[in-house]
Design a protein around this nucleic acid. Structure first.
Length: 898
RNA sequence: GGAGGUGUAGCUCAGUUGGUCAGAGCGCACGGUUCACAUCCGUGAGGUCAAGGGUUCGAGCCCCUUCAUCUCCACCA
């Protein structure tokens, strides 16, 4: 069988063909009947809003490498794919699209809106899936899931109800982060802090009892209308006489108390803090401690409250439906209806007019913004659903602390612990429509509330109709359940038994708090078991200048364009190579071109091998039939197998891949192929047959080693080589074989290579073109290295016309080269410049003498000899011996020149 | 205010438990029509491993200090 390959690797045609074939033959689906250990990965589900970006490409390349490696090792591997509904992100996009059509959510109503959302999901969810396929991801598509599919929704309801029944989910008026743009609450994790230039306004509040002016500094004067107290520190001597006094809140003339609270820090500002419990998290706490009223002065869309808002609130209180902690609403009068920004200006101007603005200082401070739209977050007291985190956090901390779950690299556990140990209750309700609707039902008739999975429930008190809570859940609430909801939970499915806990989670460090931590406490809480054993963390993919890739900068690189141009394997190589876990990486043209060149190199090596092949099956010949170069390549191949395997086990994917790169390019292509060419040309001989088998064995094995990283090219080549089985995907990953350890031949080849390199080097320095052949005389004690059989190497690779191993050689007109075991003479006649030769040899002599002095010094150091491991000391001794031999050679060469 | 990352050749970065670790790719210089590959082959130049101190027989690697740079977290008025 003669197989042929095209001259240049053209990835596109074969990628589609091979992926379809793998998929159709069901190779991605685990054989659940087979008895084998499981290895499971659940995909971090991409948002349906997006399309594949470089971050996804990296994330999924790493997962595919792991899963393909384990599959080839014989594990029962499952990679569960899916997408995330991305509640807020998707809703924002749909609202945006509707705005362009002149529509609003309210106009079309909830049902029509959800219709649009599902259509969106069909369109864009499908797109990202097909993009994942182009990368070569070997996901089990028969198990594809969506965070809002029926199963996931069931899991969400189940968890909600269970937690509610345990008292770990509660509803109440609490301080939350409100995004006036998205018009919803968001969790603490979803707030991003940005540095902004602001001001520090020093206001004066008149004191009722003494008539003094109390100076108060604030960064947010517009909240003053909602002040319900002023706090001082009880120990502050400056204000000791004011305990129990009141201030008159300017502009509205309201009397509010001066309270003593630890929150007022004597060392900061004026030591006096205005307290706005409804619009500041700290002030909320102070308000709780002193039972201060909550006065809301902002609307949910970022304006000052007015008469209508107040009326609505009054009605709520009058009806008796206002719940505990419900804030009052102020009619802000002349400020009503202004945006908070306008109100700030107006209030400051009015205070200034009244002489109550003492000074304004510029100040830089961190302002919370919405992670989706980057609108400034308004802290608000609002009635929301929360998860009580304290009891849930503890097992989640322990399971990482005990090492049951490991972060790779380890340092990210610090991040995790810090977040988990300082966690606050999780606000999970969102004023959005796209998402899992909260399974709480209210009876308008009698105010009863029921939390249940049953959507058609009746009021248990009065039997009346129930109204479901209009809010939806934080999108991360369903993501948190992903490792088990995708396997069928809450049912006790076979998949759950077989594949949970999952093995490795691969994700970026930017998502540890959002997602990883929540999956861990969820797994512990509902499964009583960790969701995964290892969290492999990777960094961000940045552009060539090191900037974050973003839409607004327009510096994003589209992975699909890269795949079209260079192939998926090249993209995968570029992403997986030369970067360590947890570190950011840069993506550049140079990198992808280098990757493309590597694929082409592999392709051509295979092309060469196939051109010289006429065997149909490959059997490794018995050792006595192997030539030195065969044993050498097998030995190095075997070491590569060991190293690559060890690095993959340690998740050192970048190192494993560079081991492979080095082996393929520098060892296999640059040396072995060149070394066996003469034998491959000698068609019909036994040596030729041996060479064919060895080169096929090594190339085939190398393709297997490389397959997890570059699945397409390796499958294509492997298929064309003599092979057993239907696909490289399911072939056995190579393992270390002690029988292939040929260390003697390694030493011989090292010597030969050193000699060949020395000759090439010397000829290059002298500008002798390779076409000018010259005789080579070798004087050496290492006769077993420089055998007749290896002469051809020098002819082929070192431009030798003929090679002779001689007892001694004297010829003044010869170039002399010295290695640690041989002296090489190349009679080049006129080309030799004796003065230059002498200088060169002297330089070499100086170098080697320096080295000898260094090693001798080391060995003369008693504590080195006494304390260093024997192997290290022996190594130094061997080195010294070689150096001395080399020096002797150089000295005799110099002698020869005289 | 806390925590962490990074700093190694001109550029981008590897360097696993301290002992052939001073490396790779790109770039640069010189040479090459060798029948797999010019997306290639051969050869070469280049680094006090940010600075200083310490531990050790031995330090890019461990410890301390400093500088530069990036990131995360944090309710500071």
């Amino acid at each position: 069988m003669k197989q042929e390959l095209a001259k240049t690797y053209a990835p596109n045609e074969l990628e589609d063909r091979l992926y379809r074939e793998w998929s159709e033959k069901g190779y991605f689906t685990p054989d659940t009947d087979r008895d084998a250990p499981s290895y499971t990965i659940v995909i971090p589900p991409p948002n349906i809003t997006g399309q594949l970006h470089m971050g996804h490409a990296l994330d999924n390349t790493l997962q595919d490498i792991l899963i393909r490696h384990k599959r080839m090792q014989g594990f029962r591997t499952l990679w569960v794919p899916g997408t995330d509904h991305a509640s807020i992100a998707t809703e924002v996009k749909i609202v945006e699209a509707m705005r362009k059509e002149g529509l609003t959510k309210e106009e079309i109503g909830r049902e029509a809106f959800l219709d649009r959302a599902w259509k969106w999901k069909e369109q864009y969810g499908g797109r990202i899936i097909s993009q994942l396929k182009r990368l070569g991801s070997s996901c089990d598509w028969t198990r594809e899931r969506f965070t809002m599919d029926e199963g996931c929704s069931r899991a969400v309801k189940e968890v909600f109800v269970r937690l509610y029944e345990k008292g770990l989910i509660y509803r109440g008026n609490r301080m939350i982060n409100w995004c006036p743009c998205c018009m919803t609450s968001i969790s603490d994790a979803e707030v991003e802090y940005e540095e902004q230039n602001g001001s520090f306004w020093h206001l004066l509040y008149p004191i009722k009892e003494t008539g003094e002016m109390l100076e108060i500094a604030t960064t947010r004067p517009e909240t003053m209308l909602g002040d319900t107290a002023v706090a001082i520190n009880a120990d502050d001597p400056r204000y000791a006489h004011l305990h129990g006094c009141h201030v008159i809140l300017p502009l509205i003339g309201k009397e509010i108390p001066i309270v003593c609270d630890e929150h007022a820090d004597m060392t900061k500002g004026t030591g006096v803090v205005k307290i706005t419990p409804a619009h500041d998290p700290n002030d909320f706490e102070v308000g709780q401690r002193h039972s201060l009223p909550l006065v809301r002065v902002f609307t949910y869309d970022g304006h000052m409250t007015g008469a209508a808002d107040k009326a609505a609130c009054d009605e709520l209180f009058a009806s008796g439906k206002a719940s505990v902690g419900e804030p009052e609403v102020l009619d802000c009068g002349k400020y009503a209806g202004m945006t908070t920004k306008e109100a700030r200006r107006a209030i400051v101007a009015d205070l200034e007019e009244l002489g109550l603005l003492k000074k304004v200082e510029p100040r830089v401070h961190e302002v919370g913004t919405c992670y989706r739209c980057h609108t400034t977050i308004e802290p608000m007291v609002s009635k929301q659903w929360f998860v009580a985190m304290e009891t849930l956090a503890k097992p989640a901390i322990d399971v990482v602390r005990s090492g049951e779950i490991k972060f790779v690299p380890e340092r990210f556990d610090k991040n995790y612990f810090h977040w988990m140990e300082n966690i606050r209750d999780w606000c999970i309700s969102r004023q959005l429509w796209w998402g899992h609707r909260i399974p709480a039902f209210y009876c308008d008739a009698c105010n009863e509330m029921v939390v249940t999975k049953d959507e058609s429930c009746k009021c248990p008190v009065c039997g009346g109709e129930m109204r479901q809570d209009p809010d939806t859940l934080d999108t991360w609430f369903s993501s948190a359940l992903w490792p088990f909801s995708t396997l069928g939970w809450p049912d006790e499915t076979e998949d759950l038994k077989m594949f949970y806990p999952t093995s490795t989670l691969v994700t970026g460090y930017d998502i540890i708090t959002f997602w990883v931590s929540r999956m861990i406490f969820s797994g512990m809480a509902y499964m009583n078991e960790k969701p995964f054993s290892t969290v492999l963390i990777h960094g961000l993919v940045r552009d060539a200048q090191g900037r974050k890739m973003s839409k607004s900068l327009g510096n994003g690189i589209d992975p699909l364009e890269i795949i079209d141009k260079y192939g998926a394997d090249a993209l995968r190589f570029a992403l997986a190579t030369g970067n360590a876990p947890g570190n950011d990486m840069r993506f550049s043209d140079e990198k992808i071109e280098a990757a493309r060149n590597f694929t082409n190199k592999i392709w051509n090596a295979a092309r060469f091998v196939l051109m010289n092949l006429d065997i149909d099956t490959c059997t490794l010949p018995a050792p006595e039939k192997l030539c030195i170069e065969d044993k050498w390549i097998l030995s190095l191949y075997n070491k590569a197998v060991r190293d690559i395997g060890a690095n993959l086990e340690k998740y050192e994917i970048g190192i494993a891949l560079s081991n492979l790169y080095d082996f393929i390019w520098d060892i296999f292509c640059d040396w072995y192929i060149e070394l066996v060419k003469p034998r491959l040309n000698a068609v019909g001989t036994e040596e030729n047959l041996t060479a064919q088998n060895v080169i096929t064995y090594v190339l085939g094995g190398t393709m297997k080693l490389l397959h997890p990283f570059m699945p397409f090219i390796t499958e294509e080549i492997w298929q064309k080589l003599p092979h057993e089985g239907d696909t490289i995907m399911l072939s056995a990953y190579p393992t270390y074989d002690p029988a292939l350890d040929f260390s003697r031949e390694e030493i011989h080849m090292e010597r030969l290579i050193a000699a060949i390199k020395a000759i090439r080097n010397r000829r290059a320095e002298m500008n002798v073109p390779p076409s000018k052949k010259a005789k080579l005389f070798i004087v050496t004690d290492a006769r077993d290295t420089f055998t007749d059989a290896v002469s051809v190497f020098f002819q082929k690779l070192a431009s030798a016309s003929e090679v002779a191993v001689v007892d001694s050689y004297v010829d003044e007109s010869a170039v002399q080269l010295v290695t640690d075991c041989a002296k090489l003479f190349i009679p080049l006649g006129d080309l030799v410049d004796f003065e230059k030769e002498r200088q060169r040899l002297n330089k070499e002599r100086e170098n080697i003498e320096r080295e000898i002095a260094r090693v001798e010094g080391k060995l003369a150091n008693e504590s080195f000899v006494a304390k260093a491991p024997a192997a290290v000391v022996d190594g130094e001794k061997v080195k010294l011996g070689k150096y001395r031999d080399t020096l002797a050679g150089i000295l005799s060469a110099l002698e020869n020149l005289k």
